[in-house]
Design a protein around this nucleic acid. Sequence first.
DNA 1: GCAAGGTC
Length: 837
Amino acid sequence: MRTVLMVAEKPSLAQSIAKILSKGSCSSRKGLNGACSVHDYTGSFMGQNVRFKMTSVCGHVMSLDFTGKYNNWDKVDPAELFSKAPTEKKEANPKLNMVKFLQVEAKGCDYVVLWLDCDKEGENICFEVLDAIQPVMNKLYGNERTVYRAKFSSITDTDIWNAMNRLGEPNKNEALSVDARQELDLRIGCAFTRFQTKYFQGKYGNLDSSLISFGPCQTPTLGFCVERHDKIQSFKPETYWVIQAKVFKGKESPITLDWDRVRVFDREIGQMFVNMTKTGREALVESVSKKEKAKQRPLALNTVEMLRVASSALGMGPQHTMQIAERLYTQGYISYPRTETTHYPENFDLKGTLRQQANNSNWAETVKALLSEGINRPRKGADAGDHPPITPMRSASESELGSDGWRLYEYITRHFIATVSHDCKYLQTTITFRIGTEGFSCTGKALISAGFTEIMPWQGIPLEEALPACEKGDAFTVDEIKLLEKQTSPPDYLTEAELITLMEKHGIGTDASIPVHINNICQRNYVTVENGRKLKPTNLGIVLVHGYYKIDVELVLPTIRSAVEKQLNLIALGKANYHQVLQHTLDIFKRKFHYFVDSIAGNVLMPTVLYAKPSRLHCSHCDETYSLPQNGAIKLYKELKCPLDEFELVLWTSGSRGKSYPLCPYCFSNPPFRDMKKGMGCNECTHPSCPHSLNSLGIGQCVECETGVLVFDPNSGPKWRMACNKCNVVVHFFEQAYKVQVSQDSCESCEASLVMVDFHKARSPLAEGETQHTGCVFCDTVFQDLVELKHATMRHPMHRGGGARRGRGRGRGRRPGGRGNPKKPKDKMAALAAYFV
DNA sequence: GCAAGGTC
């Protein structure tokens, strides 16, 4: 009797398929590696009676790596990894002894049927299996075919039998496209990773990570997190105005209406609409509409959706979730947890699965009601042809599963029950009003039937106060019309759930590898997981991505993967040659690599990597260390640069309410002008035109110390202040002002720079509704009450001796050149001369 | 020590 070897991708599938094909009559034994089983039975194959041996591998048999010496980081230039370095296939998991196991089982077999997953990876594993077993299989005489491929789209009796009756052959082109993907990922990933790691290690002592990895999936994953960080950093809040209208009828309590125009970005326009609204004495009901609406029951659960909910609702990370799911699966509580499918197979036993939960006290009532009243047909989802959706396989209790195990099981079960429940139905009532010339509306929702939200209460329609009964033409009393000032707010850091959605959308990773990539960027210290599982990039992560932005943005864009996959698909379809595509893509990345290497040395990204304490910077370009002011926080200053040396400015801050000033790390150690000393920031810099310099932001002599100048802090709003650049004096002024600027002009009395202030119209403390004023913070009577000079000892010439200001009207002014470091040098030519020294 | 993809 001839023997047919059959191989599936994983042990669980070998068992399911053997059970179907043997009609439950197979005998099973463990293989020599302990992980795989072999299921034996007899049956008919190509018209003959044969012995079947159904077994499996565990994913890929082989994995690609460089040959021996090319794994030595110290002896190989990473550039060689693009072409020169040879690769070889090694056993993916030596412990499993997969090749040996397959050969033992294949010895003496006449035919092989490949039951690997029906995707490109599965096609590739087909050839890995064939490479292992063909040398030991029986050789048949003549041209009889010995290799067959089963193509199935779900693990159901019909589908498996159909596949068995229509055997095809493995697709070499699809397998080759995976070979190409493996080689590209290996060569590109390792070359960049080795180069980056060695480069940073050589320049920095204590980086947060000893491995600075790069990969076509992990790097765009990090890119998403940094992109959001940049959006938050560059966000400028915008003020807008909305009309808040409250109306009531009879003795009922007032309801708040939504304005049809939603919001406007100009206060005057807003006020105009308020006035137009106020021309109406009453709110007239223009229409009342009632609509029955439904919130759809969920689709059957797949892996990515499970990971999203586990992260956002259960606070469990994807890696952890998959470990728990794996355990629940091997213990028989849930079905196979890695699937893209959201559609139940036609013969799926929905009722049987539901019945198992009928005595579970957590949801017994809902389940019993569904069983007696009849379940609802699940929504039509997508069948990816891999595994059925994730469902519970038997009832369980919290005590047997452990905390996280139970929480995940509970969610999976509730989700399953929800998919066979009815939609949630509610009545939506919308009333539209007209007050004066403006339109308003309000909407209320009333529950008709909870449907699936009974078992998923967190999805329920929020309870709202019922709207008053009314009809077209009714008049409501206007309780209040108000113009509210609001501000647009910045987005928050990316949540893990949002990141998963982005990765899925851009095809970064697969259901099985998404958790790995997210875990990678955490473990490499590129991001940290904050409260609410939000991903906040670290300084290292930000610097890396900004570096890619500056050198070659394609290295971090999500399109880097899809562009390559487009090429690979051509191989799979037989439209492009494997070697040509591989060579072409490697050439492109080799060029990118050399450009990256050439650019990185001169790139400003380097001096922004900070050492831990004591704070200092290290520049890789000139291999120099730069000191920084201590006892405060240092961060990048909006990526602004010093006009003298192109160094990126950093901002020193002493605390949340304290002093802050920008500084150039180079000038701090190498004073640019004769009248400057080491250790000075931009607030002491005499550059004639730089917008951050003492010249541009200095206002007047310090009110306490002899030599200091009060310098405006443009980052201090809305609690605006100026701080002395020598001593600790901080002067608060113009609180809540919208804009404060230092003018080019000086006070005629004291020579202090004039200050221009803009207030919001609603908040302006100026007389007669004025919103703008320019004047001297020391002498101007309009500003008198808006500047908190009172706590400081009055050393300013205008204040010395108390009555000076009121006594003489015009001050004595500053003694020319009298006090150490003068404020703004009057003679711009002198300043320019200093610039060129 | 490196990638991404399978799976245990």
